[in-house]
């Protein structure tokens, strides 16, 4: 019987949510949470489950990876599977991080699954098979099944198909294949060209991935005269959340006047971000939105002017499309107010 080891986070292990996201890595014999679903569709046995808090992996990456690789040293396994992580950004990055490390050290196949909006996809799709997953845990069984089907082929030594056929994100690897039948390449190429000339749709056999890069802005020449604004995706808002910004998957942003505040007071401001434990930010919002430090530098004359508003939204489960729209809207406002530079804090 082939053996698999499964990686999941503290939430799916049933240990707890954000307040326990600092949970240190542990390994358990047998099945925990999603491992049950995986084990039931895998032509093999999930012998162990590794559990790690998302924040622990995010903030103490080296230590987390070292501990987990240590757990695995005396284990026999044929494949390593992480997630599925859906749209959970930190979980996705954690799955990618540990799977990549396991592959490098033990040279076994590693698989994971994420939603296309998960930043882990962009970071790790070249390093491993990442299967296209749903947005939330409602898709757990489906996402596990897709991974298991592919895992079964690998474990049985069967031939695997292309990214589209198998359902993983293209890895930038081009494979040459013999078509069983169908027209030869020159004919297909000319057919495509004719379609292109006629403005008809065609599917390229050599897709070029699009890179979305922002040009480096020119530096601020004289900081002592510059107008600087603060932005955060950490969900810091007045306690009554006047703009009703959503705690997750935000589509709204707000701006709040700080011209008369030396710092953000607890009880006046708080975070509504549902993606991390709010205790520290509620007790002192300046740990997320450092108004106090900016005011101190302003008084010292390090920069010219602090823009009267800080801007805020929530960056968890927020789609790239919404983030881009909100970003454009905010930049427009900042331009109107002649802001020269921005410091943005993220959680």
């Amino acid at each position: 019987m082939k053996k698999a080891i499964h990686y999941i986070n503290q939430f799916f292990a049933g240990i707890g949510g954000e307040e326990l996201a600092d949970h240190k890595p542990e390994i358990r014999e047998g099945l925990v949470g999603p491992s049950l679903a995986l084990n039931s569709v895998l032509d093999g046995e999930v012998t162990h489950t590794i559990i790690c808090g998302d924040n622990f992996m995010g903030s103490n990456t080296e230590e987390a990876v070292k501990l987990i690789l240590g757990f695995l040293e005396d284990k026999e396994f044929d494949i390593f599977i992480a997630g599925p992580a859906f749209q959970a950004g930190r979980y996705g990055v954690a799955c990618g991080t540990i799977a990549k490390a396991v592959k490098e050290k033990f040279n076994v196949p590693v698989l994971t699954s994420m939603n296309e909006e998960n930043p882990g996809v962009e970071m790790f799709k070249k390093d491993m098979h990442i299967f296209k997953g749903g947005k939330s845990a409602a898709k757990l069984r489906d996402d596990v099944k897709v991974m298991a089907d592919f895992a079964n082929k690998l474990l049985m030594g069967e031939k695997t198909g292309s990214a589209d056929e198998e359902g993983f994100f293209p890895r930038g690897i081009r494979a040459q294949v013999w078509l069983e039948n169908g027209p030869i390449a020159s004919k297909r190429g000319v057919d495509m060209l004719i379609k292109k000339l006629n403005d008809e749709e065609y599917i390229s056999e050599l897709p070029i991935p699009e890179l979305d890069r922002v040009e480096i802005a020119s530096p601020i020449m004289d900081l002592s005269k510059a107008n600087i604004a603060l932005i955060t995706t950490g969900g810091i808002v007045p306690v009554n959340n006047p703009d009703r910004i959503q705690s997750a998957s935000a589509t709204r942003w707000g701006r709040y006047d700080i011209s008369n505040d030396d710092r953000l007071q607890s009880g006046v401001y708080k975070t509504i971000h549902a993606g991390f434990d709010p205790a520290a930010a509620d007790a002192d919002p300046n740990v997320v939105m450092p108004v106090d430090a900016m005011k101190a530098y302003l008084k010292e004359g390090k920069f010219g002017k602090l823009h009267k508003y800080f801007y805020s939204t929530v960056g968890t489960g927020t789609t790239q499309a919404e983030a881009m729209r909100m970003g454009k809207e905010i930049v427009e406002k900042l331009r109107e107010d002649n802001v020269d530079g921005v410091i943005m804090t993220a959680t």
Binding site: S59, I216, F276, A279, A280, A283, N286, V287, T345
Partner: peptide, 16 residues
């Protein structure tokens, strides 16, 4: 393009 590290996710700029 310009990145300054912070110390954690729930409290980027001050460990309680």
């Amino acid at each position: 393009n310009k990145i300054v590290p912070t110390i954690s996710i729930p409290y980027p700029l001050g460990d309680p």
